[in-house]
Simulated scan of single mutants.
Amino acid sequence: MKRKSLLLAFAACLALGAGLLATPHAHAQPKYTVTAEQLQEAVAQRFPRRYAMGELLNLTLQAPRLRLLPQQNRLGTEMVVDAAGPALANSSTGTFDVDFALRYEASDQTVRAHQLRFNTLRLAGLPPGPAALLEAYGPTLASQTLQEVVLHKLEPKDLMLADGLGLEPGSITVTPKGLVIGFVNKPLR
């Protein structure tokens, strides 16, 4: 009788275990987190940047202040812009605002900015001519400034567990505290 009860209990455990294995959430896949501070530090290393707009105007972009936009799964940034040159009577300071999505680049294991959206470029006290030129040049400046900028580089040690499980970085989710990189199964080769 004890043997029969033990076998029934063992069979029930096996059935329960098999049911758990079949559910998609039974095995939590690893995730990798990048804090807002880590992102800010990585971006700040690539600034200031200078851009000439012909011989009329020179722009200097200071290190951006990143904003996490979890509702849109994007990052935003605002940069201080200093403008000077023959097109201006006096130098001017203002702000440049863009937002962007993120993507993972497997070739160098980096998280990069892409799908940039130009929002605004405002400089205080500009005459209408230079102001219109800057507004027209804004999307190009955004692309040159942040398109494909590396925001974070994953190290081999960061990927060791996932690689051993046959996984690679997949989704990138913007949260109120930073980024969460999810992993997906590597394609069969």
Results as ranks from 00 to 15, higher is better:
1 M>E: 04
2 K>M: 10
2 K>N: 08
2 K>V: 05
3 R>G: 00
4 K>Y: 13
4 K>L: 11
6 L>A: 04
6 L>T: 08
8 L>Q: 07
10 F>M: 15
10 F>Y: 09
11 A>P: 05
11 A>D: 03
13 C>N: 10
14 L>Y: 07
16 L>S: 10
16 L>V: 14
17 G>N: 11
18 A>E: 10
18 A>Y: 02
19 G>V: 04
22 A>Y: 12
22 A>C: 07
22 A>V: 11
24 P>M: 05
25 H>G: 02
25 H>Y: 07
27 H>G: 00
31 K>F: 01
31 K>W: 04
36 A>M: 01
37 E>K: 08
39 L>F: 05
40 Q>D: 09
40 Q>S: 14
40 Q>H: 01
41 E>P: 01
41 E>A: 12
42 A>M: 14
49 R>H: 14
52 A>Y: 04
53 M>Y: 12
53 M>F: 14
54 G>H: 04
57 L>N: 06
57 L>W: 00
60 T>L: 10
61 L>T: 09
63 A>E: 13
69 L>I: 12
69 L>V: 10
77 T>K: 04
80 V>F: 07
83 A>F: 01
83 A>N: 06
89 A>Q: 12
91 S>C: 01
92 S>A: 15
94 G>C: 12
96 F>V: 09
96 F>Y: 15
97 D>V: 15
99 D>Y: 11
99 D>K: 05
106 A>V: 02
110 T>I: 11
111 V>C: 01
112 R>Q: 15
116 L>R: 00
116 L>Q: 01
118 F>P: 03
118 F>V: 07
120 T>C: 06
121 L>H: 10
123 L>F: 12
125 G>V: 06
128 P>Q: 11
129 G>A: 14
131 A>D: 14
131 A>S: 14
131 A>E: 10
135 E>C: 00
135 E>W: 06
145 T>D: 04
146 L>Q: 04
150 V>P: 05
152 H>E: 08
153 K>N: 03
153 K>V: 12
153 K>E: 11
154 L>F: 15
156 P>G: 12
157 K>W: 01
158 D>C: 08
158 D>F: 08
160 M>P: 00
162 A>I: 02
162 A>V: 13
162 A>K: 11
163 D>I: 00
164 G>I: 06
164 G>K: 14
172 I>C: 10
175 T>H: 08
176 P>A: 03
176 P>M: 03
177 K>R: 09
178 G>N: 03
178 G>I: 02
178 G>T: 08
180 V>P: 02
182 G>S: 06
185 N>F: 04
188 L>S: 15
189 R>A: 04
